[in-house]
């Protein structure tokens, strides 16, 4: 039995962040504090452009927060690190690398070749036989699978997902949701996922955090203690969905 590295816990303490837009400072995140336990699957929901993706960038260490602190495994985040891997909405595969070389990216960066781990990651996402394909030859779903394999080959302790399924067609999306869930259950890493899809959040996550319009503030934080495998027409799930949509200000639209 392969042992996977222990999942990571994340603490956000009084995060404030913003950008200068057109000469004036625009606040994007206002006083967000969250405690994420190791192994949790947290979905971040919120209106479009509210600052959820910015929050992910702070957790990944791609930018330092304006004020407040991000702790990963109890240690302040000072930059990106290979145990916190981000998966973006676009697969962002390097077009000049084959699928295999793309999956092996983190190994190249670390300077440690590990063909077995790369092969295993490719097999895990069902891309066996496509190792030598160029990214432009893949469908959207396959490209996103390759990106998933690239993220997982490094055995991350935290997987940060920025709307990873947002651009997929609805059927591919269903398959990928199941896939993500299976990998999370098997590997046990912590997941923070931004999504626009309330149903997706409720199907996958152990906890759904809802944000206000910009600047982002936490408006609700709900634990979803429904057993897996969850069904879309489960009445408890539908009730939660209604509740969250109302909180997001869509009491009429659903």
């Amino acid at each position: 039995m392969v042992t996977h590295p222990a999942p990571m816990d994340i603490q956000l303490r009084g995060i404030h962040h913003g950008y200068p837009i057109g000469g004036t400072f625009t606040p994007v995140i206002e006083d967000v504090s969250l405690d994420i336990a190791p192994g949790e699957f947290v979905a971040l929901l919120g209106p479009s452009g509210c600052g959820k993706s910015t929050l992910l960038r702070l957790v990944a260490g791609l930018e330092p927060p304006h004020a407040g602190q991000v702790l990963a495994g109890g240690v302040p985040v000072s930059g990106p690190g290979p145990d916190r891997i981000v998966m973006f909405q676009d697969p962002t595969l390097y077009p000049w690398r084959t699928v295999r070389a793309n999956v092996a990216l983190s190994r190249d960066i670390a300077g440690r070749r590990d063909d077995a781990a790369v092969d295993a990651a490719i097999a895990m996402v069902g891309l066996k036989g496509f190792e030598r394909a160029w990214p432009h030859q893949l469908s959207g779903g396959m490209a996103q699978r390759a990106a998933l394999a690239r993220a997982l080959v490094n055995e991350p302790r935290l997987l940060i997902l920025d709307e990873p399924l947002g651009k997929l067609d609805s059927l591919t999306r269903l398959t990928m949701q199941t896939e993500l869930l299976r990998l999370w259950q098997k590997r046990g890493f912590t997941v923070i996922m931004v999504t626009h899809d309330v149903e997706e959040a409720l199907l996958l996550a152990t906890r759904v955090v809802t944000f206000s319009t910009r600047p982002a503030r936490v408006i609700s934080d709900v634990s979803i203690d429904l057993p897996y495998h969850r069904h879309r027409d489960d009445p408890r799930l539908l009730a939660l969905r209604r509740e969250i949509l109302v909180r997001l200000g869509h009491s009429e639209d659903w």
Binding site: L62, P82, T92, Y94, W96, D108
Partner: peptide, 24 residues
């Protein structure tokens, strides 16, 4: 985003120039 991907995996400037910027 190409730089972000490599940076989250711990890439330093040398990698970003030689293995990301130049091939792209």
């Amino acid at each position: 985003a190409y730089y972000d991907v490599a940076r989250t995996m711990g890439a330093r400037d040398r990698f970003l120039v030689l293995r990301v910027a130049l091939p792209a």
